[in-house]
Design a binder for these strands. Structure first.
Ligand SMILES: [Mn+2]
Ligand SMILES: [Mn+2]
Ligand SMILES: [Mn+2]
Ligand SMILES: [Mn+2]
Lengths: 218, 218
DNA sequence: TAAAAAGTTTAGCCTTGGCTAAAATAAATA
DNA sequence: TATTTATTTTAGCCAAGGCTAAACTTTTTA
């Protein structure tokens, strides 16, 4: 069995990857000192889960990737399960799942997936990897790079930033919301959008974290 | 925040207590070597959670007891929640809760309790401590010490022994089941009981783990 | 009540996963 | 290109929580 720390490192490397993950970025993502990340990368390399080239960067081996995706699957299933049963707000889900994901047996994972009807997206719109790590190829684009004057459908919102998520929630921006971009500030990238008849200003920091699709659903 | 190990030790001491908990029993309960238990008892004593008298035994301080009861509450809420939402078998619940109990925030604990309508018993019939550690005084008696020829109602079955639990389940012995004892073997304490018209033989090892009440429900 | 057995603690060791400070390397800048 | 700066790694330390073997108490038994 992998420890909580090992699972968190693998998941973070996956989230920051696919390759040349910088020690500093990894350390920051996990709230540890860079030296701690280096040491763990060495341990994970010794275990065959990571390939780390000193001073260059780290990436997951196939085995490491499989384990990372298993954590991601548990995380997203849990978010979906908690949202569905307990009506937790989208911004509370992540932190709970972050801890519960390490305490889920294969049996319970299966039971939850079955209960939910094997969902393919979590409440933030993130794809849920299959039991063997399968992920659909992602075709949506960033809101910050989307065309103006065209119907867009929100496909993904971030999950790690409760403040941003709360703001998005207040402005009714979440998966399946429709909107249309009216203008883009050429200086700072800020957007003006039309959403349910209302006009909303969207900062570029936000627009960089939100994904949209042009098609209906996906 | 208390570690998983600390929470498990506190809960085990509570389960084996209330006082003079033997090092060996504790170690066995937690599947660690006696020397490991001694060391942890010393750490917990230094933290004011346990009072340990060398060569005599250990007990929880009021603060330690509060923390132990908080773990027990989370454990039993989780068992109830999993049973209700996912229809897990009574014998699968314990092991899952054993790990999840350490990953539950106060918020999620509240949400689950509210969702369940603040239950006072878990699926094994064990009382669920209140948010401040309150527990009703337990008035039921052991099946092994119950009178013959009288209507009895199962109030508690064990949760840590999947085999025994599976046997009980097969024989329809679980909370709220009615039964009547017909005879007790004076040599080994084995029981013959009448249950839903059927006659069942109950070993004394089982009868020692099952609680009953004479009143309806409780 | 002395010896043996059982239970407990101590001593010493190990791994994991943190940290800081210093050294090494790579990247950026003058 | 030489130097400064940023990034990364190494070295050395620490606490938690395991373990085994040895020492010490307490309890049981002869
Ligand atoms: Mn996590
Ligand atoms: Mn998510
Ligand atoms: Mn536990
Ligand atoms: Mn229970």
């Amino acid at each position: 069995m992998d420890s909580v720390a090992v699972e968190n490192y693998l998941k973070s490397i996956w989230e920051l990857g696919p390759d040349d993950v910088a020690t500093q970025d990894l350390a920051q993502h996990l709230n540890v000192a860079p030296a701690s990340a280096t040491k763990m990368l060495q341990r994970l390399t010794a275990r065959g889960l990571v390939s780390h080239i000193p001073y260059k960067g780290a990436s997951l081996t196939p085995e490491g990737q499989l384990k990372a995706l298993s954590v991601v699957r548990r995380h997203r299933l849990l978010e979906t399960f908690l949202a569905q049963t307990l009506n937790l707000g989208r911004e509370q889900l992540h932190d709970e799942a972050e801890r519960l994901e390490h305490a889920l047996s294969a049996d319970l994972e299966d039971a939850i997936a079955t209960y939910l009807g094997n969902p393919t997206k979590d409440p933030h719109g993130h794809p849920i990897p299959g039991p063997d790590g399968q992920l659909p190829t992602d075709t949506d684009l960033l809101l910050s790079e989307s065309p103006l004057n065209q119907r867009l459908i929100i496909s993904q919102v971030p999950d790690r930033n409760p403040e941003m998520l709360a703001w998005l929630e207040r402005n009714e921006i979440f998966p399946d919301t429709q909107l249309e971009l009216i203008s883009r500030d050429s200086f700072d990238g800020g957007l003006t959008a039309n959403l349910n008849g209302k006009t909303v200003q969207i900062a570029s920091s936000v627009a960089n974290e939100v994904h949209v699709s042009l098609e209906d659903d996906s």
